[in-house]
Amino acid sequence: MFRDITIGQYYKADSFVHKLDPRIKILLTLWFIVIIFICKTFFSLALMILLVTVSIAFSKVPFKMFLKSLKPIIPIIIFTCIINMLYIKNGDVLLEFWKIKITSEGLNTALFMTIRIITLIVCSSILTYTTVPTMLTDAIERLLSPLKVFHIEVHTLAMMMTLALRFIPTLIEEIERITNAQKARGANFESGKLIQKIKAMIPVLIPLFVSAFSRAYELAFAMSCRCYRGGEGRTRMKQMKLSYKDLIAVFVFVLTTAGVILFNIYLKSFSF
């Protein structure tokens, strides 16, 4: 029952986007989020959609996967749509009945917001689909390394994140195993009231904590056996190097941003 949860949703493929430096990918994703909020006209939005579509094409991740990642946020999209349509009263009235008035501007805004949310989610999905979780934390560590000036232990934080990600599947397996063992002794997880259901989890949670703690001790021991002593002076097996591909990606983003700003200024009057 716990198998369906996917945390790292990496999609293995050999593509242009996969090969980009993870640091650049994170920065570009942030950049994308900023521009999507700068967009003021449908023309600039269209440009962003084009950028997302091209990125998907170059990532070799099947389109189906993105639809899957959009599924959980459908309620949020519908909610924003309704709120926008009901509360914006400016513009021409398109439909009016009882106390509800739907205006052209309301419809416009609703559509605008929907596209914004969808592109936002799809864009961040491209990042997680094309980057291994450990590479992501690694890249975050590098990007945050200037914070060392303020005595923040960036390496420790990143290592903690990596370890947490690494142990999620292990713990899921463990939960499944303990649940089965307790089921075999007649534990009842399915029926009963809420309180009873919570109580029924105790025989699973206690062994889980016990084994998680012993795993943590063992891991700490194994790490110190291999002379791990934090980030100081630590070198890396996988060096992150910028390549011409990253340059191309950045260049594309610069062009798109320029396009968005131009459209914002000159095509404003064409707004619906």
Partner: peptide, 25 residues
Amino acid sequence: VCFQYPEYQLFEETVYKDIAFGPRN
């Protein structure tokens, strides 16, 4: 059924209570 490495399923404060888990159910 007693699964592999069943020692990881122990959870009660005493051995008595833990063995009693099945019979109580």
